[in-house]
Every structure is written in C-alpha cells, then in structure tokens.
Simulated scan of single mutants.
Amino acid sequence: MSGHSKWSTIKRKKGANDAKRGKIFTKLIKEITIAAKMGGGDPEGNPRLRSAITVAKSENMPKENIDRAIKKGTGDLGGAVYEEILYEGYGPGGVAVLVETMTDNKNRTVADIRHFFAKSGGNLGESGCVAWMFDKKGTISVDKAGVNEEQLMDVALEAGAEDVVEEEDSFQIITAPESFNDVVDQLEKGKIKFAEATLSMVPKNTIEVTEEKAARSLLRLLDNLEDHDDVQKVHANFDITDELMDQLS
C-alpha cells in the first residue's frame, strides 16, 4: 500500500487536490465519457460508469457535469474521441511507474511522457515491463477524526472490503474492484464520510527511496505526469520516510 497511500498523503499535504480541482474534474469527465461510450449510460448496468460516478461524487463534482459527460459518451452531445493507453517505465531509484492516459493524439502524449521520464533520470519501458508488479484495487480513505474505528471496520468488512489499514491520520479501506461500489454505498448509508474513493493499481511490493536527490526527482516526475492533460492516473511502487519528506518540504 505504501506507494499509493504515500503519494495520496503527499498530495493532500501539498494541497495539490484543491489547487488542481479543475484538472481533476477534466480527468473524471473523460473517464465518465469513455465508460458511457463503452458500456452505455445506465450506471446500474455499467460497473465502470458506476465506479466513475462514485469517484466523481467523492470529489464533489456537480451532478450536471456528470450528466453532461454521460451524454457525451452516449453520443447525445458532441465531443472529442479518446483512446486509452497505458504507459510503463522506471523512475529515479528504480521505482516502477504506471501511467494511465486518455488521449486524442497519442503521438503527442507518448512524446511528452517519454520526455518527463528522461528528464527525471528514468526511462519509458515496453508494455508489460512493470504492470505485473501491481494489483487493481479499490481504495477508500477515511480521516481518523470523527470516525469510530470499530464501526468503520464492521461496515467495511461486512460490505466486502478486503482489509482496513490504519495510517498516521487516516484509515485506508482496500477492496476488490467488484466490491468497490458496494463498500462505498454501505459507508454512505452508515453516514461515514470519506476523503477519497478511487480505483487504483496498488503495488505488491515497494521500493524505499532513501536519497534526497532521487526522491526529489521522483516526486517531480509524478507531479509532471499528473499535471499533464492526457494523464488520468499515475501509480508507483515507492516509499519515502516521513523524515526525508520533511527535508524535501
């Protein structure tokens, strides 16, 4: 879990989620659009669309934005045609990096991503070079403040969660992808608020980055990738100690 949870924690501390709210909405709209295009506009019969809507709601996206994105996907509204491409590579310190993209110009996208990797001292790899190091999971972050741990455990596990992991200031609920929506539904029914809910590629093992230069370059790489308009999600199998994070800050 360290790679995903560490990066999520870092972004929250930096305020990146608030600063890039517009970009987050743009990425979510793309996901909803392509989900509706591939599986139809009814979330009850389209698990991918239902998950995308769940994540959008967790980011407080207005209902009209969600409805408009669905209509674009079903063809009721015009819009760009996107292609999904997964890029894989190695960042500083040998950290494995997965980059999920949705683009209308793959030549532009791959050129930019290759540039980011090279600039950081990493390299873009072949398809399949690092994907095997990750498992797809649902991850739901619940702030410790104001939540009853015993109630949270009962609700999450009864709804089908695989595990609840305690961290410094939050609980991370881990689910199989097919249980993700059910767990979110039960949390909402139990009036348990969550800070983040998303489907992620969770690393099976992590690499600890101990050198300041490598850590700084890695975080810059992840920032550059996530800031790119064509990038939907970035996953990496790293861990950085809190002490080193304090130095970087």
Rank of each mutant, 00 (worst) to 15 (best):
M102A: 13
D76C: 01
G79N: 10
A80Y: 04
K72I: 11
K106Y: 08
T101R: 06
S51Q: 15
G79A: 10
S58R: 05
G93K: 00
T101D: 02
S51V: 05
K72Q: 13
R108A: 10
G89M: 03
E100L: 01
I66H: 05
E44I: 09
N107F: 13
T74R: 12
D67K: 14
N46Q: 05
D76S: 11
G94R: 04
G73A: 10
P47D: 03
N60V: 01
A52I: 13
G89D: 05
L98N: 04
E100Q: 00
K72M: 14
Y82I: 04
A52C: 13
K57V: 12
I85R: 15
I66M: 07
G91Q: 00
I53K: 07
R68V: 00
I70G: 01
K71Y: 05
G79M: 11
E64H: 11
K57H: 06
S58G: 07
Y90R: 06
K72L: 07
Y87R: 03
L49H: 04
K72A: 02
V99N: 00
E88W: 05
A52N: 01
R108E: 14
R50L: 15
G73P: 00
P47C: 15
R48N: 14
I53T: 13
D67P: 08
E64K: 10
K63D: 12
A96D: 08
I70W: 10
V97F: 08
K57D: 03
D67Q: 14
P43Y: 13
L86V: 06
D104R: 12
D76H: 01
A56Q: 02
T54I: 13
A69C: 05
A96L: 01
P47T: 09
G73V: 07
E44T: 07
N65P: 02
A56I: 09
K106E: 14
T103P: 00
T54L: 10
K71V: 04
T109P: 14
T101F: 08
G78S: 13
G75K: 04
V55I: 12
G93M: 07
G73Y: 10
G91K: 05
L49M: 08
L98M: 06
I66T: 12
P43N: 12
N107G: 15
N107Q: 15
E84W: 14
Y87P: 00
Y87S: 06
N60C: 02
A80T: 04
T54C: 07
D67S: 15
G45Q: 10
G45K: 12
G78C: 02
I66V: 12
G45V: 06
K57T: 02
I66W: 10
K57Q: 07
T74F: 11
D67W: 08
K63V: 14
D76Q: 11
P47S: 13
V81Q: 15
G91H: 06
G89S: 03
N60K: 04
V95I: 09
A56V: 12
